[in-house]
Nucleic acid binder design. Structure first.
Lengths: 216, 216
DNA sequence: ACAAAAGTGTTGTTACTACACCCATGG
DNA sequence: CCATGGGTGTAGTAACAACACTTTTGT
């Protein structure tokens, strides 16, 4: 059981890792996880292990990522591990143990086992889903301005995003709605920003037929 | 280890199942599979188990589908199983054991355990990939006319597909190419059909940015 | 007044669907 | 010469990026 927990922090996508104190891979950084015990499902197990590192109520979304099995993936006995992708909204800073910290996904330190591949697979899964679903709800705070949402998308996707077009795309798809409130401008002035929220906070596919849609 | 092996047969999407002779789920239909043994990867294992049911050289594509873990999914001890999706091209009819046969995915018989959900998850994964990748290569014979390819897409997607537009979409994306050959018309006459093939026979994502593409 | 930040209107492009039309063969 | 099946040409449409323009604030 392994968890790839991602969060946008300081304008970059970060993953939660802990530093190994023992061999193998002493001083390398590893994904949180642990063994599956009798009677629990994979989801229950991953949440149980996450509890040791972070307040799991902060995890807004969880999905199965992959199961890895290569006999050489661990130096000792072969271990089969199922990895999950978890997302934490921006703005909360869960307290974590001393050996645990967040690392920019685009500047990973030395990682243990095959964890680097799993982190990158998680990042890629997130990027794909940002394009055709409302999964942004799991990265964004409950309410936000479009400028804030734009920064989240930029960090997660790794390329520029226009706030203008982002707004139109997400409103057209019915993913966002206005709260009716406004955010006061900063010290330099500027028009007050409209405050938005995600209409639903559970996964919905918004663009099911990117191509080859049915007739009608 | 479980395998959801799909093939287009007689105009419908079919899955390979075997009939259980013993309890639990006696007389119900189950996915092929077996246990993972020491030293083999999940992929090696699923191919080994498939060999007992079908000539695995016929499996043109294999990908991991999901890992299931619900403690109640089997009546006895809890079993964790990783399911794979396999695709067999149209036109070949692998010899299978007496207890094994193909079943229309849209008219499944009584199935064992949670295998029905896995079959439907496999079908849905295939449908999604048909829209944004070249995965048709694994369902189609090496060469085919557009009318034949259209029937494969209709069977797999479950809705009508226009041969006219299918051709243009797949040619524009660089997925198909003409072989230069023609197919003689049937007894009722008609213009000879052009024979096509897939340019590549390994998975390629052809529509990576269905939305929110990078600037440029 | 002017800079700064947010939001709107408009245009052009692309990838698609739909449908009319044209082509090549067998009877 | 016409039915049959295959292929092409051409609108029409929806979703998007790009960018100029307008609105609302602070100094």
């Amino acid at each position: 059981m392994l968890a790839v927990v991602l969060q946008v922090r300081e304008g970059a996508l970060a993953v939660l890792l802990w530093e190994r104190a023992r061999e193998p891979f002493r001083r390398a950084w590893a994904l949180p996880g642990g063994v599956l015990v009798h009677g629990e499902t994979l989801e229950e197990s991953i949440l149980r292990h996450l509890t040791a590192k972070v307040d799991v109520r902060e995890v807004a979304y969880l999905e199965q990522l992959a199961t890895v099995s290569d006999p050489d993936r661990t130096p000792s006995d072969r271990e089969v591990a199922t990895a999950y992708l978890g997302l934490v909204p921006l703005g909360i800073d869960p307290s974590v143990p001393a050996d645990t910290s967040w690392h920019d996904v685009d500047a990973l330190p030395a990682t243990a086992f095959d964890h680097r591949e799993l982190i990158l697979a998680g990042r890629d899964r997130l990027r794909a889903k940002l394009s055709y679903s409302n999964i942004g709800f799991a990265l964004a705070p409950t309410t936000f301005t479009l400028a804030e949402l734009r920064e989240i998308y930029v960090a997660a996707l790794g390329h520029e995003v226009s706030a203008t077009n982002l707004k139109r795309v997400l409103l057209r798809r019915g993913v966002l709605e206005s709260t009716g409130r406004q955010r006061a401008p900063g010290p330099g002035g500027g028009r007050p920003a409209e405050v938005f929220r995600f209409r639903r906070r559970s996964l919905e596919i918004t663009d099911p037929f990117a191509a080859l849609r049915p007739p009608g």
